[in-house]
Design a protein around this nucleic acid. Structure first.
Lengths: 187, 187
DNA sequence: GTCTATAGGGCGATAGAC
DNA sequence: GTCTATCGCCCTATAGAC
């Protein structure tokens, strides 16, 4: 056995969610997290830029998934269709860790500064999706609009899915939400 | 003359924008702002919850304007049409202080934590608009979708308007952006 | 790993308006 | 007297610097 337990980063992320859920975000110090994970506070900040970022470790992977799905979508589809499928596949990724996703969502919902970070990540996702659509040859303004529609559907669908345990799976909720969005837009 | 100059809050807001523009948000301390405004740091925090909030003093007024416009819209219009007009009138309010709005936007664009707060305010605006649409008798899910479309158009239009000095006025940019959004959605 | 500046909250004192 | 704005000094945790 080595001098340190492996996967300090993963332990920090798990422990942070635990503590934020137990006592609340503000009532937890970074030192509390580091201690329970068996590392120093300094080590926490080597892995995560700030106290909030530990809850957003998965967002880069989610973004890659969306970008790749847009790149690999069959040719000849409209911008919204491509975006819709890309975000539906992102929904599938979340579905795989649905228990984690729901716990994490509850923690975020309880704290405004975490909501701010979440919204920032969604905005980054919109930018990345826009760029990926542009790379497919879709003109900039159209790409930005389609990406915005996709992220809006994604985020409204996620809210629905989190609120209702027994609802449909996230991917299909995203698809139906986007369909509803298109319906409302045309009215 | 009283012991204090009047309108400490307004002075703090003006001075903060000045300093954030001059030296950058991170290079400015709350003490710097308080000092230049002729109050103490403690007084700053009585008026504004944190270092960022001073740039968002107008958002409550903007939100009221949108909510009132939704309430007062003529009957018989669709949810998106009502939302569109409400956000266009919000655009007119910003247009009145366009120089301030552009300076403020530049400061926010230069700092991620300010962007986070901006996104949070936009999300609050979405919630408020949704509630106002529901109060008109529009069913919840439709209201949420229409409000999201409105805020998306508002925010994309604002980006365009800020980027291009010589562009059309903000209200009409919002209208054309929403029209483009509806067009893209139906494709 | 150690050190330090700053954000930001708590509490009580003070000074004015009414 | 009350109500409200300002101030001073205490404190801790975050987060960056060295």
């Amino acid at each position: 056995m080595g001098r340190w337990e492996p996967d300090a980063r993963g332990r920090l992320a798990r422990v942070a969610l635990e503590l934020y859920a137990e006592r609340g975000f503000e009532q937890t110090t970074v030192e509390d997290i580091a201690e329970r994970a068996g590392v120093t506070e300094r080590t926490y900040f080597r892995h995560f830029a700030d106290k909030r970022e530990v809850l957003f470790d998965g967002s880069a992977a989610l973004q890659s998934l969306v970008v790749d799905a847009i790149r690999d979508a069959p040719a000849g589809r409209s911008a919204v269709e491509v975006a819709a499928e890309a975000f539906a596949s992102a929904g599938a990724l979340i579905e795989e860790r649905h228990e984690f996703a729901r716990r994490r969502a509850a923690v975020i919902a309880a704290n405004p500064s975490l909501q701010e970070r979440e919204l920032y990540k969604l905005a980054s996702l919109t930018s990345a999706a826009t760029a990926a659509l542009v790379a497919r040859g879709i003109p900039q303004p159209t790409a930005a609009l389609a990406a915005s529609l996709g992220v809006t559907a994604f985020s409204l669908a996620f809210e629905t899915w989190v609120a209702d345990e027994s609802s449909a799976d996230l991917s299909s909720t995203i698809r139906t939400t986007l369909a509803a969005l298109r319906e409302v837009a045309t009215t």
